[in-house]
Design a protein around this nucleic acid. Structure first.
Lengths: 147, 147
DNA sequence: TATTGTTATACTCTATAACTATA
DNA sequence: TATAGTTATAGAGTATAACAATA
């Protein structure tokens, strides 16, 4: 179609470059997938981790997801204020709070996960089930923080 | 080691989640890899694309890398001001500029690419050459913008 | 002393809208 | 009218330093 062939040059063989692009692609489509819910990738991540680990404190959630303590504060506040998350004092350690999903928080997460399943299926349509599993396996082997 | 097993819950089977984590991991190590050069992922991307397509204009570079026109301006300025990039007027179309690397820009990019090669090798140490090729192939098949 | 949560702050990245000059 | 570059601006994401309360 075009007269001149353009290329990515030395970026082409870099795994990091393709990770960045693919990740950006997913992030973009994620947005439209959860549009209207007021959710974002980080927030869904937090809800999912709290759901899987009821009673966890926000520092631990942050460590798992690679979010700094300081940045967790407003994120947790946001989720508490919209009634998705509940923060309760624990007598064991009065410095931290015990986090749990509210009923509406569970529904919200479920709604997001349903939409995300569709979004994933769409973006991975070009790969066979086996290839998708392989990709998951390869990706999980190059992650490290709390991996 | 820990008394309680923590998990990522419903995030675990999501390719998007692992892409995000792996990509973040690479981005973090990229930073330390190019530390002292004053470069960042975007800037290296731009230099590499200009090197591979001399005379390209900044709008086209942005399209390839998924960067909005408005955001290209300061990035290109940054590279021109530090003497890595040269902007020349073209009589063909006086709205746009023709971009090329300067000698020092080529050296800068080469230096970055050398460091990035080490960084990639380190982060991909857990995968065989075949697996790395496979990963590249799978990733390239789930990218789309100007892919 | 170390840890949990917090505030304040700053820089990068990303996104939109509106302007100019050229085509 | 469409496009290339620009300006201004606002919202996220991410980073550091310093503080209070608790362990």
């Amino acid at each position: 179609m075009s007269r001149k062939t353009i290329s990515f040059g030395s970026l082409s063989p870099l795994v990091g470059f393709h990770l960045r692009r693919a990740s950006g692609e997913f992030a973009l489509d994620f947005r439209s997938a959860v549009e209207g819910t007021g959710m974002r990738q980080v927030l869904v991540g937090i809800l999912a981790v709290v759901e899987a680990n009821p009673g966890i404190n926000q520092g631990a959630v942050g460590k798992m997801l690679g979010i700094k303590r300081a940045n967790m504060v407003s994120l947790i506040n946001e989720l508490v204020e919209r009634g998705a998350l509940e923060r309760t004092m624990t007598p064991r350690d009065r410095r931290s709070f015990s986090l749990e999903l509210t009923v509406s928080g569970k529904a919200l997460l479920a709604e997001c996960m349903t939409r995300i399943a569709v979004h994933e299926k769409k973006l991975l349509a070009g790969l066979s089930d086996l290839e998708q599993q392989l990709l998951l396996n390869l990706l999980s082997r190059i992650e490290s923080p709390a991996g």
